[in-house]
């Protein structure tokens, strides 16, 4: 292992309570798709990945959850940080990943990740996608469990092509990947159960 604890930025100051508090925010986000939650106050992380992504992974990833990093994030300081603080094994094959971290401009974000099976739809990956903003993009309508009627989604940095793939992912339900968008210290979740309109209903 390269890197030692002294050269790494710290993880959670108070592991049990930090993880609990952050998990409840994440649970709030999954229970209310489209809602933006703050993961502020947690670990800063290696800087290459956002604070929200760092907090999300420290909260949920460990040695039982293989992690796939997009090339932009697949750097020694990220790998060392996550290996040290979470014990997460890094994988190069997308199909083995429980979690994946991608950039909003990465092509074919869904390609190759596990979507579960009809009998075990839970055996699927969760994709963490870093975007420029969670609330400044074109507005799309979304519907599904957790949403009272319909909600507005304004994630920036994703084109119609992305949302077409997202619709195809939703069509696999109960299979499919779950999506988490992060920007800075904020996070928004879009479980596979949610349908998002491909075309924006208004732009900003």
């Amino acid at each position: 292992m390269s890197g030692t604890s002294s050269s790494l930025s710290p993880g959670f100051a108070d592991p049990a309570h930090d993880a609990q508090r952050l998990f409840r925010r994440v649970l709030d986000a999954f229970s209310h798709p489209g809602r933006i939650v703050s993961l502020a106050g947690a670990a800063v992380g290696p800087g290459t990945i956002s604070r929200a992504t760092t907090a999300y992974l420290l909260t949920l990833a460990d040695r039982d959850t293989p992690l796939w990093l997009a090339p932009a994030f697949d750097r020694p300081e990220v790998r060392d940080y996550l290996r040290f603080h979470a014990g997460t094994p890094m994988v190069v094959s997308r199909s083995e990943a429980t979690f994946a971290v991608l950039r909003h401009e990465d092509a074919d974000p869904f390609e190759g990740f596990a979507v579960g099976t009809d009998t075990y739809p839970d055996r699927s990956a969760t994709l963490v996608i870093e975007v420029p903003s969670l609330d400044e993009g074109p507005i799309r309508l979304c519907r599904g469990p957790g949403i009272d009627g319909e909600a507005h989604l304004a994630v920036a940095g994703l084109d119609d092509g992305f949302w077409r793939q997202c619709a195809a992912n939703h069509a696999l339900f109960p299979c499919g990947a779950d999506l988490v968008f992060t920007s800075g210290s904020s996070l928004l979740a879009l479980p596979r159960s949610i349908s998002v309109e491909v075309s924006p209903c208004m732009s900003r």
């Binding site: 229970s31 109960p174 779950d178 596979r192």
Partner: peptide, 8 residues
């Protein structure tokens, strides 16, 4: 729990 929420 998060999987459970994602697949009600």
């Amino acid at each position: 729990i998060l999987k459970a929420v994602a697949v009600p």
